[in-house]
Amino acid sequence: MGAAPCRQPKDPLMYSPTAARAPLAWAAPAIVIMLLFHYGAFVAGGWYAFTDWDGLSTPNFVGLANFRQVLTSAEARAALTNTLLLTFFYVTLSNLIGLGLALMLNGALRAQNILRMVFFAPVVMSPLAVSYVWKFIFSVNGPLNAGLEALGLEGATRVWLGDPDTALWSVLVVMVWQFSGLCMAFYLAGLQGIPTDLIEAAEIDGASPWRRFRKITFPLLAPAATVSIALPTIFGLRTFDQVIALTFGGPGYATETLATQIFKQTFAFGRFGYGAAFALVLTALVLVVSVIQLLVLRAREDRI
């Protein structure tokens, strides 16, 4: 693990004995940038959420009206439900598959480097490009339906992206295909940090493979699991590219997400206020979920 030995020690801050060794001024450009691009823009954008600004006229303060609509309108409910469903299954599946792949590819397999390379390759590609490839696979005359027909399963063929029962799951498949390899890499890195003598000792003690995994490997993978759950959670909550490329939110509202609604309400309908309210909801969601997750996962790391 040459890259960054930055597993947080209990007291991570190791200060130089001489005070103020690095002048604050060095951080000034970055601080200014943070104030402008994050805090300032965030406050400005957040303020829109309490107005009826349409991008053209003078904004009027409307209090919480936008938030009431976010909580009650059909498109908002769909966007919220879809985002949560997508995130939950995306995190779960990509972690399960990623962990499975990591366990399978950790050890002396022939061609394991090539196999790892294959599973990780989608991670580096742009989600947009990946989604277009899958759009073809899911298309009505595409490989998926053709394959089902070849297997004699004509009854199972569908308009995958146009059927409200399958559209969201199709988007999920694309996300899981693309990013399971990332979870695999996290878990592989975690596995490589586990001392082999520990496992060997357990083996000599006669522990079954499952027991060895349950009692030694799994607990020691906790830091890997933290990253492997936290990062896809943020990705999942912000899902945008895949939906825009695959379904554009349809059919109906079947695949709208918070991020696509933010984009559409703001940039397509010019409802800057309402769109900003969506964005604030997304922000709150990301903050709450991330903080809870980090607390739980870190506590789990410490417990183990």
């Binding site: 059909a74 059927d163 409200p164 349809g250 059919p251 109906g252 079947a254 397509a268 309908f269």
Partner: peptide
């Protein structure tokens, strides 16, 4: 603008069984 968006989605919702005509008219 949202009326047009509702019309487009609603028509598709009707044919995919996600909504009835009356629901779309109300929307």
């Amino acid at each position: 603008l949202e009326v047009l968006d509702t019309l487009s989605r609603g028509a598709t919702q009707i044919v995919t069984g996600q909504a009835t005509i009356d629901e779309v008219l109300a929307a």
